[in-house]
């Protein structure tokens, strides 16, 4: 398993991109890495695309990732897996939800929703994991936990212990949402087992 250090989490405002980034960041910190996270607040939250960059290493300088230097993309919405694809290194990992959110630009005919998403990603890498995170999250008890399902899918591809992730999630989500999120993480973690 090659080391995954530079990660982009992409999604749409309201999907929980920032929380997913926070969990990753805290897990890496607990595991002893230097870590930086960059994200955009403000206008991007009004239904716009949202991304969070997470970088870890012995020493991390810039909070920004580099074109062609990203090891993994986590997409909480299917088409968002393409937005940062040219930042992915060849052979990098893509973990994407099957949830689609059609933007108003498509409804208005200004833009078009991509069709051959998996094929497009395939031109860059053969490491692609797709899952119906929304259904799995509902199974866990709340559709909002789709971000943590995706995190579970992704975490399975890293070297960190499962217990470390579970402890980190417990610290990052409010008490009342803890159980649902632990179930969501487990469903993601075990999905391809």
């Amino acid at each position: 398993m090659d080391r995954i250090n530079d990660i982009i989490i992409a999604g749409v405002g309201g999907q929980g991109v920032i929380l997913a980034g926070t969990i990753l960041t805290r897990a890496f910190l607990t595991a002893g890495f230097d870590v930086k996270q960059a994200e955009i607040h403000g206008m991007a939250q009004r239904g716009g695309s949202v991304e969070s960059f997470v970088r870890r290493g012995e020493k991390v300088h810039s909070p920004l990732v580099r074109r062609g230097g990203v090891d993994a993309i986590l997409a909480l919405e299917t088409s968002e897996s393409l937005r940062w694809l040219d930042y992915l290194r060849p052979g990098g990992l893509v973990v994407a939800s099957r949830e689609t959110i059609v933007p108003v630009t498509v409804t208005q005919g200004i833009s078009r929703y991509p069709q051959a998403i998996a094929e497009e990603i395939g031109r860059r890498t053969d490491r692609l994991l797709f899952a119906d995170t929304l259904s799995l999250a509902r199974q866990a008890g709340n559709a909002k936990a789709a971000n943590v399902v995706l995190l579970g899918l992704f975490a399975r591809n890293l070297e960190l212990e499962r217990s470390l992730w579970e402890e980190t999630i417990a610290r990052c989500v409010p008490e009342r949402a803890r159980e649902v999120n632990q179930r969501a993480f487990a469903l993601g973690w075990e999905h391809f087992d």
């Binding site: 939250q45 239904g47 716009g48 695309s49 968002e80 897996s81 937005r83 933007p103 833009s111």
Partner: peptide, 14 residues
């Protein structure tokens, strides 16, 4: 640089 790309997703009124 890719054939298929992410749709435009600007911020909009909720």
């Amino acid at each position: 640089s890719f054939k298929e790309e992410a749709p435009l997703r600007p911020p909009v009124l909720c």
